[in-house]
């Protein structure tokens, strides 16, 4: 079993050069245009449908970074916690964020979310929550004030 710090270790962000549109996508050339598209689409659809039917719910986490190209490497990074249900279609995504995490993530340092004191200035805090169900959508936002927000993180060390 990997320890928590290993599981949460993010790979470093790519270099700035890779943000540019350098590579052409590997798409198919004109030789591969099919004469009976319905047949190909039917096959694709049946493969997808089988996988779709088998995937009822998913839980997971992700590091998400966002960089605006013109702003000289400025960006944000957050930890996402999500739960998805296919039928009925429901989703919940919580985003945890703090300013220092971006620099740590960019430099490839471990950001041990679970080990951080939620009352410290470096703690990650839930700043956005989105819940979607067939009946409603809930959007919750918290704003950091000197590292503080009213939303708390469940990723706190167990005493």
């Amino acid at each position: 079993m990997p320890n928590q710090a290993d599981r949460l270790s993010p790979a470093p962000l790519k270099s700035r050069a890779s943000y540019e549109f350098s590579e052409a996508p590997t798409l198919l050339d004109e030789r591969y245009v099919v004469s009976s598209p319905e047949k190909v689409i039917d096959k694709l659809r049946s493969v997808q449908q089988k996988a779709w039917d088998e995937l009822k719910t998913v839980k997971g986490r992700a590091w998400k970074s966002f960089i605006r190209k013109q702003s000289n490497d400025r960006g944000t990074v957050g930890l996402l916690d999500f739960s998805l249900s296919q039928n009925p279609r429901k989703s919940k995504i919580l985003m945890y964020y703090q300013y220092k995490a971006f620099e740590d993530y960019k430099n490839g340092k471990v950001t041990d979310v679970g080990g951080q004191d939620p009352d410290s200035k470096d703690a990650l805090y839930c700043v956005t929550a989105i819940i979607r169900t067939p009946e409603l959508m809930v959007l919750a936002t918290g704003y950091l004030r000197n590292g503080w927000t009213k939303l708390k993180s469940p990723h706190r060390r167990k005493e």
Binding site: R7, L8, P10, A11, L13, K14, Y19, F21, L55, K56, T57, V58, K59, G60, R61, A62, W63, K64, S65, F66, I67, R68, K69, Q70, L80, S83, S85
Partner: peptide
């Protein structure tokens, strides 16, 4: 990515079909 921004998402701790 688009002409103005770049986003990366790295997934981990994925669990299939958990009881919710």
């Amino acid at each position: 990515k688009s002409s103005v921004d770049y986003q990366e998402t790295r997934f981990f701790d994925l669990v299939i079909n958990p009881e919710l």
